[in-house]
Computed example of a mutant assay.
Amino acid sequence: MHSRMEYLMKLMEVIEELKEEAKRDIPIIVEGKKDIESLKNLGIDGTFITVSRTPIFEIADELIANNIKEVILLTDFDKKGRQFAKAILDELRSRGIKVNTEIRKKIIKYSHGDLKDVESLYIYISRRIEGIKF
């Protein structure tokens, strides 16, 4: 059985992994602007692509035009986010673009499914850290 502390530490490791990938200029696909704010608050600075208002095929065209061969998929964790993720995954993979879904899966795992969206990630982590008694 893992403690909340262990899960928080694992979640922080995932955030560090995301920071490293962003430093390598791998774009992060999110749904909207609030998702970007949340990630930036966590110290993740990189190229963000929002998909909520742009057809997926246009995003794929843009990635190919810019010779981008890999992206990190970070759509929300609710039903709509899962459907979005699948559609994006299918489209991008069919175009030969590598899609990292591992980070998204780890965030879901280490947040015990308590998180519904990326925009809540910063607040979720902040509250967990505040709750730790040293």
Rank of each mutant, 00 (worst) to 15 (best):
S3F: 09
S3W: 04
R4K: 14
R4N: 15
M5I: 14
M5D: 12
Y7A: 10
L8F: 04
M9G: 08
K10N: 12
K10Q: 12
V14I: 11
V14W: 04
E16R: 11
E20S: 10
E21C: 02
A22Y: 03
A22Q: 04
K23L: 08
K23S: 13
R24K: 15
R24A: 08
D25A: 03
D25T: 03
I26G: 00
V30K: 00
G32R: 12
G32C: 03
K34Q: 07
D35T: 04
S38T: 06
L39Q: 02
L39H: 01
K40N: 12
L42A: 04
I44W: 02
D45R: 12
D45F: 13
G46P: 07
F48L: 06
I49S: 01
P55I: 11
I56C: 07
F57R: 12
I59M: 10
I59E: 06
D61M: 09
I64T: 12
A65W: 03
N67C: 02
N67H: 12
K69G: 10
K69C: 04
K69R: 14
E70G: 00
V71A: 08
I72R: 00
I72V: 15
I72K: 00
L73P: 03
L74S: 02
F77Q: 04
D78I: 12
K79N: 13
G81R: 01
R82T: 06
F84G: 00
A85Y: 00
K86N: 09
K86T: 11
I88P: 00
L89R: 06
E91C: 14
E91V: 13
L92N: 02
R93H: 07
S94A: 07
S94Q: 09
S94K: 06
R95P: 02
R95S: 08
G96P: 07
I97Y: 07
I97R: 10
I97T: 03
K98S: 10
K98G: 01
T101A: 10
I103A: 05
I108G: 05
I108C: 01
H112V: 12
G113E: 05
G113Y: 05
L115P: 02
V118P: 00
V118C: 02
S120M: 11
S120R: 14
L121Y: 05
S126R: 13
R127K: 15
R128V: 03
E130V: 10
G131R: 12
K133T: 11
F134Q: 06
